[in-house]
Computed example of a mutant assay.
Amino acid sequence: MAEGSFDQFDRKILQALAEDGRISNSQLAQKIGLSPSPCWQRVRRLEKEGVISGYRAILDQEKLGAPEVVMIEVVLDRHDDEILEAFGTTMERIPEVLEVHLTTGEYDYLIKVAVNGTRGYEEFLRRKLYRVPGIRHTRSSFVLRSLKNVQAFLPPG
Protein backbone atom coordinates (compact mmCIF):
# COMPACT_ATOMS: atom_id res chain seq x y z
CA MET A 1 0.00 0.00 0.00
CA ALA A 2 1.39 3.40 -0.96
CA GLU A 3 2.30 5.79 1.83
CA GLY A 4 -0.70 7.88 2.85
CA SER A 5 -3.19 5.77 0.87
CA PHE A 6 -5.59 4.43 3.44
CA ASP A 7 -9.19 3.48 2.89
CA GLN A 8 -12.03 4.58 5.15
CA PHE A 9 -11.63 1.59 7.48
CA ASP A 10 -7.87 2.15 7.92
CA ARG A 11 -8.54 5.80 8.72
CA LYS A 12 -11.25 4.89 11.23
CA ILE A 13 -8.92 2.35 12.87
CA LEU A 14 -6.11 4.88 13.14
CA GLN A 15 -8.41 7.54 14.58
CA ALA A 16 -9.93 5.13 17.11
CA LEU A 17 -6.52 3.85 18.24
CA ALA A 18 -5.17 7.40 18.52
CA GLU A 19 -8.05 8.14 20.90
CA ASP A 20 -7.78 4.88 22.87
CA GLY A 21 -4.83 2.58 22.26
CA ARG A 22 -6.25 0.03 24.73
CA ILE A 23 -9.55 -0.52 22.93
CA SER A 24 -10.17 -4.23 22.42
CA ASN A 25 -10.25 -5.62 18.90
CA SER A 26 -13.93 -6.52 19.24
CA GLN A 27 -14.80 -2.99 20.42
CA LEU A 28 -12.69 -1.49 17.65
CA ALA A 29 -14.34 -3.70 15.02
CA GLN A 30 -17.79 -2.73 16.24
CA LYS A 31 -16.87 0.96 16.33
CA ILE A 32 -15.60 1.05 12.75
CA GLY A 33 -18.14 -1.34 11.23
CA LEU A 34 -16.06 -4.44 10.48
CA SER A 35 -16.08 -7.95 11.86
CA PRO A 36 -13.26 -8.72 14.33
CA SER A 37 -11.06 -10.84 12.03
CA PRO A 38 -10.65 -8.31 9.18
CA CYS A 39 -10.25 -5.54 11.75
CA TRP A 40 -7.44 -7.45 13.50
CA GLN A 41 -5.77 -8.15 10.12
CA ARG A 42 -5.88 -4.45 9.23
CA VAL A 43 -4.39 -3.41 12.58
CA ARG A 44 -1.58 -5.97 12.18
CA ARG A 45 -0.90 -4.73 8.62
CA LEU A 46 -0.76 -1.11 9.80
CA GLU A 47 1.66 -2.16 12.56
CA LYS A 48 3.82 -4.18 10.14
CA GLU A 49 3.97 -1.26 7.69
CA GLY A 50 5.09 1.03 10.53
CA VAL A 51 2.03 3.29 10.32
CA ILE A 52 1.32 2.30 13.92
CA SER A 53 4.74 2.51 15.52
CA GLY A 54 3.76 1.56 19.06
CA TYR A 55 1.43 2.01 22.00
CA ARG A 56 2.13 3.85 25.24
CA ALA A 57 0.54 5.03 28.44
CA ILE A 58 0.04 8.74 29.02
CA LEU A 59 1.36 9.54 32.49
CA ASP A 60 0.21 12.38 34.74
CA GLN A 61 3.33 14.48 35.34
CA GLU A 62 1.72 16.28 38.29
CA LYS A 63 1.08 13.00 40.12
CA LEU A 64 4.64 11.93 39.32
CA GLY A 65 6.07 15.03 41.03
CA ALA A 66 7.17 17.01 37.97
CA PRO A 67 4.09 19.06 37.05
CA GLU A 68 5.73 21.95 35.21
CA VAL A 69 6.80 21.75 31.59
CA VAL A 70 9.54 24.00 30.24
CA MET A 71 10.36 24.54 26.59
CA ILE A 72 14.06 25.30 26.14
CA GLU A 73 15.61 26.67 22.97
CA VAL A 74 19.27 25.68 22.66
CA VAL A 75 22.07 27.11 20.53
CA LEU A 76 25.24 25.04 20.16
CA ASP A 77 28.79 26.37 19.81
CA ARG A 78 29.46 24.29 16.72
CA HIS A 79 27.46 22.18 14.32
CA ASP A 80 29.83 19.39 13.41
CA ASP A 81 28.68 15.77 13.52
CA GLU A 82 30.54 15.03 16.75
CA ILE A 83 28.84 17.84 18.72
CA LEU A 84 25.40 17.09 17.26
CA GLU A 85 25.69 13.39 18.07
CA ALA A 86 27.02 14.04 21.59
CA PHE A 87 24.20 16.48 22.30
CA GLY A 88 21.55 14.02 21.09
CA THR A 89 23.03 11.14 23.07
CA THR A 90 23.21 13.24 26.23
CA MET A 91 19.59 14.40 25.87
CA GLU A 92 18.43 10.77 25.53
CA ARG A 93 20.04 9.98 28.90
CA ILE A 94 18.41 12.80 30.90
CA PRO A 95 15.08 11.53 32.28
CA GLU A 96 13.47 14.98 32.66
CA VAL A 97 13.86 15.59 28.93
CA LEU A 98 10.61 14.53 27.30
CA GLU A 99 11.26 15.62 23.71
CA VAL A 100 14.18 16.91 21.64
CA HIS A 101 13.72 18.53 18.24
CA LEU A 102 16.43 19.70 15.84
CA THR A 103 15.00 22.91 14.37
CA THR A 104 15.62 25.56 11.77
CA GLY A 105 15.89 29.23 12.62
CA GLU A 106 17.58 31.11 15.42
CA TYR A 107 17.96 28.09 17.74
CA ASP A 108 19.36 24.65 16.98
CA TYR A 109 17.17 22.55 19.26
CA LEU A 110 13.88 22.80 21.09
CA ILE A 111 13.68 20.55 24.13
CA LYS A 112 10.69 19.84 26.34
CA VAL A 113 11.47 19.18 30.00
CA ALA A 114 9.35 18.17 33.01
CA VAL A 115 10.38 19.73 36.34
CA ASN A 116 9.05 20.35 39.84
CA GLY A 117 8.66 24.14 39.91
CA THR A 118 11.29 26.82 39.54
CA ARG A 119 13.61 25.16 42.05
CA GLY A 120 13.40 21.91 40.14
CA TYR A 121 14.14 23.82 36.98
CA GLU A 122 17.14 25.57 38.53
CA GLU A 123 18.47 22.20 39.67
CA PHE A 124 17.93 20.75 36.19
CA LEU A 125 19.84 23.65 34.63
CA ARG A 126 22.76 23.62 37.08
CA ARG A 127 23.18 19.86 37.51
CA LYS A 128 22.30 18.64 34.03
CA LEU A 129 21.78 21.00 31.11
CA TYR A 130 24.65 23.42 31.81
CA ARG A 131 27.03 20.47 32.13
CA VAL A 132 26.35 19.39 28.54
CA PRO A 133 29.37 20.34 26.42
CA GLY A 134 28.83 22.47 23.36
CA ILE A 135 25.91 24.63 24.52
CA ARG A 136 26.43 28.31 23.80
CA HIS A 137 23.05 29.76 24.75
CA THR A 138 19.59 28.75 25.99
CA ARG A 139 16.25 30.47 26.34
CA SER A 140 13.41 29.01 28.40
CA SER A 141 9.65 29.36 28.64
CA PHE A 142 7.42 27.70 31.21
CA VAL A 143 4.25 26.18 29.77
CA LEU A 144 1.31 27.76 31.61
CA ARG A 145 -1.37 25.52 30.14
CA SER A 146 -1.51 22.98 27.35
CA LEU A 147 -4.47 23.70 25.07
CA LYS A 148 -3.95 20.72 22.76
CA ASN A 149 -1.73 17.68 23.06
CA VAL A 150 -1.94 15.03 20.35
CA GLN A 151 0.74 12.66 19.13
CA ALA A 152 -0.08 12.49 15.43
CA PHE A 153 -1.97 14.14 12.59
CA LEU A 154 -4.03 12.03 10.22
CA PRO A 155 -4.28 14.06 6.98
CA PRO A 156 -7.64 13.98 5.20
CA GLY A 157 -7.90 11.18 2.67
Rank of each mutant, 00 (worst) to 15 (best):
D10V: 05
M1Q: 12
R126V: 14
Q15I: 12
A66V: 13
P36Q: 09
S24H: 11
Y130I: 07
V100Y: 06
A2N: 12
L110S: 04
K12T: 06
G157A: 15
E92D: 13
S24G: 13
E96Y: 04
R56C: 13
V43E: 01
A57Q: 10
V113C: 05
A2K: 13
L144S: 11
R45H: 05
I83G: 00
I135V: 11
V143H: 14
A2Q: 13
G88Y: 01
L46K: 08
L14Q: 05
F153D: 07
N25T: 10
L28P: 08
Y55F: 11
R126Y: 05
R139S: 04
L64Y: 05
Y107S: 13
I23V: 13
E106V: 13
G21Y: 00
Q61F: 02
F9T: 14
L64M: 12
A152L: 06
V74R: 00
T118W: 08
G54H: 02
E62K: 15
S35G: 14
L64A: 08
I32G: 06
L28H: 07
V69D: 07
L144D: 10
K112P: 01
Q30W: 04
Q61A: 11
S5W: 12
H101G: 01
F142K: 05
E49N: 11
L14V: 01
G4L: 10
S146R: 15
D60H: 03
R127Q: 15
L28G: 06
P156Q: 12
A57Y: 11
K128W: 10
I83M: 10
Y107M: 11
E47I: 15
V97N: 01
I135T: 04
G54K: 03
